[in-house]
């Protein structure tokens, strides 16, 4: 058997290459496009720019204020929907996050073409920001939105089932709720190739 490794050509931008990449991409879009998730996460709206009295001749004060607003709008840009279970570095402001990842955990006992896959979602909230204007704890409200989006959905291929939903203390400053959704999915890299590796060539 020869394996033509040098001739490998991949389109790394194609999300469908790998089911984990595909599902995480779908989840990321799903969370970002939800109209309420970012609001409950406390994603700050950028400040509107100040108006110049004379558009062609703004004063120094007006330009200074405009620059401060632009800097502020840059500063508040944070990735609060994170596609892995780790916050990078020091979070110096009070921020909340939804983190998620996908893991495969075993194949089916009778049919190893099917595997059990888990989607782990953590809603991480800073202790100073636990209260929402609704009087509902922020972790619970985020939990509701995530479950509303994912529970029993077929958007990721097979049906997603919520298996676990528990509170979790991360450290002195953060609390979270951690959800685990299970999905049974084919254990295949490429559905057209089935249980074969495409680089295995049986030419001699």
């Amino acid at each position: 058997m020869k394996r033509d490794i040098k001739g490998i050509s991949r389109d790394l931008d194609d999300r469908r290459n790998n089911d984990i990449v595909y599902k995480k991409d779908k989840l990321f879009k799903m969370f970002n496009e939800d109209p309420d998730l970012k609001d409950v996460l406390g994603v700050l709206e950028p400040k509107p720019l100040n108006e110049y009295l004379d558009v062609d001749n703004p004063t120094e004060e007006e330009l200074k204020i405009r620059q401060e607003i632009i800097e502020y709008n840059e500063k508040i840009k944070h990735d609060q929907i994170v596609p892995f279970l780790k916050l990078n570095g020091l979070q110096k402001e009070v921020l909340n996050f939804v983190m998620f990842d996908v893991r495969d955990d075993g194949v089916d006992y009778y049919n190893d073409t099917m595997k059990k896959q888990y989607i782990e979602v953590m809603c991480v909230v800073h202790e100073d920001d636990m209260e929402t204007e609704y009087g509902i704890v922020r972790t619970d409200l985020l939990d509701y939105i995530v479950r509303d989006l994912l529970c029993w959905t077929n958007a990721l291929g097979f049906q997603v089932v919520l298996e676990e939903d528990r509170p979790y203390i991360l450290d002195a400053d953060y609390y979270s709720r951690r959800m685990r959704f299970a999905i049974k999915t084919p254990n295949l890299v490429n559905k057209h190739m089935g249980r074969n590796n495409k680089y295995d060539s049986f030419k001699f």
């Binding site: 279970l85 780790k86 916050l87 570095g89 020091l90 979070q91 110096k92 983190m99 953590m122 991480v124 991360l170 450290d171 002195a172 400053d173 953060y174 979270s176």
Partner: peptide, 11 residues
């Protein structure tokens, strides 16, 4: 000045 926990970093 910082402490690394399982998932996050704190002052």
């Amino acid at each position: 000045g910082v402490w690394d926990a399982d998932y996050s970093t704190a002052l």
